[in-house]
Nucleic acid binder design. Structure first.
Lengths: 146, 146
DNA sequence: TTAGATGCAAATCATTTGCAATGAA
DNA sequence: TTCATTGCAAATGATTTGCATCTAA
């Protein structure tokens, strides 16, 4: 008895020790709506575990990246957001006014990736779009004020 | 007499004082091959003006951005590069192995911008691509080693 | 038992800011 | 003269790291 649990634990982080912090952080990332910053993840984790440190959050995020569990994205010009890796390929629109992040996807991006491979012989490992602008809502509000 | 010079100076930075630091920095950015980091700009400026400070470099870059003279781009995950604004629309490929930055342009990107406007009502002010991978050279070298 | 993880504090690194001194107009 | 700019040093904010202590296996 107990066999199944041991196996399961061993696998969860590819043989790396399963700690309560790692379990907590992974579940919070999965619960997060799409993407979450290290700081916000730390805030939420602190509610469940008062003594968890920011360093652990960063180290765990690093580990999750290496294990391919999460994806790191730089949104805006300052800090990173993290999201569960198996979420479908998509990009983000960051509204300069309300700060909301809107997800979208487009087949044009994979076409672009193909183009780069063929025309420049580049072997792509990552392709991200960084976009700024005003969302529909904020664009409307601005034009009403004018 | 002198009228022309005064006019010219007034215009150069839209009425803001023309200092030797600003002149130096602008000329160095224009001489730079496409893009340059704040740090490297500071290094080059220091050769001509020993006492120039990094703070001035950052403040001047900030001003140039506001005046629309340069464009700020985040390359890699850490720091920014700056480039003269009237350079044609293009994007960068950052090689993960040799670190070289390769410029390229593609009409697909403006198509994508159009798509976003129509499908999400987004009013775009900036669209950038962030790409990582291995350049042709490094890809070849890696496969020779295998 | 022991390699690897954690918490804490201090360290980095890019960028920003307060302030007194300086310089352009 | 006067207001903006500069240099310097200290402050920020995100992220990383050294180290002594814990803990999963």
């Amino acid at each position: 008895m107990g066999m199944r649990n041991i196996r399961k634990n061993r696998k969860e982080f590819s043989g790396r020790p399963v700690t309560s912090q790692r379990r907590l952080l992974l579940s919070l990332i999965r619960k997060a709506d799409g993407h979450i910053s290290a700081k916000e993840l730390y805030r939420r984790a602190s509610r469940k575990n008062e003594s968890i440190s920011l360093a652990t959050v960063y180290r765990t995020l690093q580990l999750f990246k290496e294990l391919g569990l999460v994806e790191e994205r730089r949104l805006g010009q300052v800090y990173c957001h993290y999201e569960v890796k198996d979420s479908p390929d998509h990009q983000h629109l960051v509204c300069r006014s309300c700060g909301n992040v809107i997800d979208f996807e487009s087949p044009l991006l994979s076409k672009l990736a193909e183009e780069l491979k063929h025309e420049h012989g580049f072997n792509l490992t990552k392709i991200e779009l960084y976009i700024e602008g005003y969302c529909q809502q904020c664009t409307k509000e601005a034009s009403n004020m004018a």
